[in-house]
Computed example of a mutant assay.
Amino acid sequence: MDETDLAGARDGFRAGAAGAAIGVGIALVAWGLSAVIGDGAFPAYLLGPLLMPAVSFVGPLWRERPGHRRPATLVALAACLPLMVVATLIEDGQEDPDGGPTVWWGPVYLAMLLLSATLYGALAGPPGAEPGRSWLRFTGRGRRYHLVVYGGLAAALALAVGIDAVAG
């Protein structure tokens, strides 16, 4: 990784961490209101909508790094799939009596946010770079870079599917 890639990964992680902190704060306030007004149980059905504002901190990163925006977004979102597969396996063992989501999904959402923001920051290129011309190609990067990025993503997906096949 170039120094700019490491700086981008740091910027992405910071954006994801700031968003995750806001999301956790909102979720804790909802839990507190549930304790005061309701039955005190964590409102797990609100996890997705409550943590979605956390993504807004990645918006400035998106605007300032247009260089490889499309392939970086594709890789960052696809990297969350293995985490979702493993989380679903764990969730199956922790069924909620009502059949709804459990509190387990909160840390999973936060991990996915941090992972995708960090990967996006590392792969999107330096600030102010010229926009890329392809959905899959990181323009100006060699074949080895593409092999590492897409090969690592394919290996993570294969590992998640393998874990699902063994555990399921």
Rank of each mutant, 00 (worst) to 15 (best):
D2I: 10
T4K: 04
L6W: 05
A9W: 07
D11E: 12
G12I: 00
F13P: 05
G19Y: 01
A20G: 03
A21L: 09
A30P: 04
G32V: 13
L33N: 12
S34Q: 15
I37F: 11
A41H: 06
A41F: 06
F42N: 07
F42D: 08
Y45G: 02
L47D: 09
L47H: 00
L50T: 13
L51H: 04
L51A: 05
P53S: 00
P53H: 01
P60H: 09
L61E: 05
R65E: 05
R65C: 05
P66G: 12
R69H: 14
P71L: 13
A72D: 14
L77K: 03
A78Q: 03
A79G: 03
L81A: 06
L81S: 01
L83M: 03
M84W: 05
A87E: 00
G93C: 08
Q94N: 15
E95G: 14
E95I: 03
G99E: 12
T102L: 07
T102C: 04
V103W: 13
W104G: 14
W104M: 11
W104H: 15
W105L: 14
V108T: 12
L110W: 06
M112I: 15
L114P: 13
S116G: 12
T118C: 03
A122C: 04
G125H: 01
P127Y: 13
P127C: 13
E130S: 15
P131W: 06
R133M: 05
S134K: 14
W135M: 10
R137Y: 07
F138E: 02
G142R: 01
G142M: 05
R143G: 15
R144D: 09
H146K: 02
H146F: 06
V148G: 10
V148K: 04
V149K: 00
V149S: 01
V149H: 02
G152Y: 14
G152K: 09
L153W: 05
L153D: 04
A156I: 04
A158R: 07
A160Q: 10
D164A: 14
D164H: 09
A167Q: 10
G168R: 11
